[in-house]
Nucleic acid binder design. Sequence first.
DNA 1: TATTTTCTGTTGCAATTGCAACATTTTTTA
DNA 2: TAAAAAATGTTGCAATTGCAACAGAAAATA
Lengths: 205, 205
Amino acid sequence: MDISNLVQDIASNCIKVQKKTFLPGSVITTYMEKRKQICILLEGRAELIRYDLKGNKDIIERFNKNAIFGEVFHHVNTNNELFVLATKKCEVLLFLYDDIRVKCRRNCSFHTSLVSNLLELILNNTISQNTRIEILSKRSIREKLLSYFNILSKKAYSKNIILPFSLTSLADYLSVDRSAMMREIKNLIDDGIISKDGNKIKLLY
Amino acid sequence: MDISNLVQDIASNCIKVQKKTFLPGSVITTYMEKRKQICILLEGRAELIRYDLKGNKDIIERFNKNAIFGEVFHHVNTNNELFVLATKKCEVLLFLYDDIRVKCRRNCSFHTSLVSNLLELILNNTISQNTRIEILSKRSIREKLLSYFNILSKKAYSKNIILPFSLTSLADYLSVDRSAMMREIKNLIDDGIISKDGNKIKLLY
DNA sequence: TATTTTCTGTTGCAATTGCAACATTTTTTA
DNA sequence: TAAAAAATGTTGCAATTGCAACAGAAAATA
C-alpha cells in the first residue's frame, strides 16, 4: 500500500488531517477517554507506553513505518493513561475518527479513498494482532517460540529464517522472561529441533 | 451499530454479498490462502477452530452476534487449515474483501456505507484484540486475572462485576490452565483482594 | 577511537504453573 | 424427570518459569 498519494490528497482537501514531525523523546499523543484519535506513522519509530502503579515504564507496543495507532483502537480508562513516544524522528498523520466517519456520508471521493486506505491499514494491523494472539495463547515458551518460528518460516517459504528484531525484543513480543527464553532456545538447539547462528534460525524438522 | 439497515440494502444492490443460515455443527467457512473472505455474524454463535498435529481440537476464537471474521484477518498457511463451525444456528453475511475495496472506487453510496460500517465493526474487533493482547502479555495468572477484572470494572463503572462467561471459558480467554486459575482465584480471595459469589466478583481495593 | 549503552548468554533458586485425577454441583438434553 | 454433559472446585506433584545477578560481546554515541 502506498500512503504517499493519500498524503498528497490531504494537502488539497478539507478535513482536519494534520501532518506533524516529532523529535525523538517527544510525546506524539496521549490516549484519553473519548477523543477517538487515529494516527498513521509515515516515517520513524515510536512506542506505546504506560507507567504502572510502581512507576515502571511498560512498553505495550512498538510502531514502525505505516503503523496505525490511536485511542480509537483501545479501551481507555481515565486512570491508566497511555502515551505514544517517538523513539526516532517521526512523521505522523493525525486526525479524528469521527471526522472521517461522518463526512464520508457526504460521498466525497477523497474521503472514500481515505476510508478505503484506512481499512487496509487497519486490516494489516488486525492480521498482526491475530498472529500475536495466537502466539501468546501458547502455554509454554517452547511452544511460543516454535509457533513464531513456523509463522516466519511460512512467510519466507523457507526453513531458514532471520529474526526481524533482537532477542531482547523477541522476549518482549512473546511476553516471556528473556533469560528463560534464552534457556529454552538452548534446549531447542540441544534437542536438535533448530540451529542458530546469530539472528539466523534454521528449522531442522 | 445497527447492521440490519446494511442487510436491507444488500437485498437491493449489486455486489456479491450472500446471507446464509447455518445449523449447529456445520462449517460456515474454512480459511485457505488468498481468498480474502469476510463474514459478519448477524445472529448465533460460532468458533474458529483448528486441529493440531496430535488431532486435538484447538479453539482459537469464539464469535457472537455482530462478530466479524474471515481469512482476511489471518495470516493463513496451506498446512494449518482453520475452520469456522456454527455452535448454534447462525445467520451470516459473506462476501469478499476485494469486491468491497474495488467497487468502492466507483463512488456508489451503498458501498461507501458498507465500508464505513465495516470500518466500525473492524474497529470494535481491534479494540477487543488490543484488550486481549494486553491481558495475555501479563506474566502471571494473578496479573492476568486482575488486569481482566479491572477492565470489566472500568467498563461497568463499578467494583462489582459479573463475569460474562463461565470460568472454564475465562481460563481459555486468559489462556491458562483452568485448575491453576481456580487456585489463583482462591488465593486472591484468601488475600482479601477480591470476593466471589458464583460469577459475581467484587474488587476489594 | 574511547566510552557508554544495549544486547547476548548463563546459572541457581524459589515461585508459579500445568497436568492429572478426582468429587460435586449445575445445566442441558432426551 | 431421568440421564448425560458441562462446569466448578480441590489437591499433589513435577516441570516450567521468572527473577536476580552475573560476564562478555556488540553496537551506538560522544
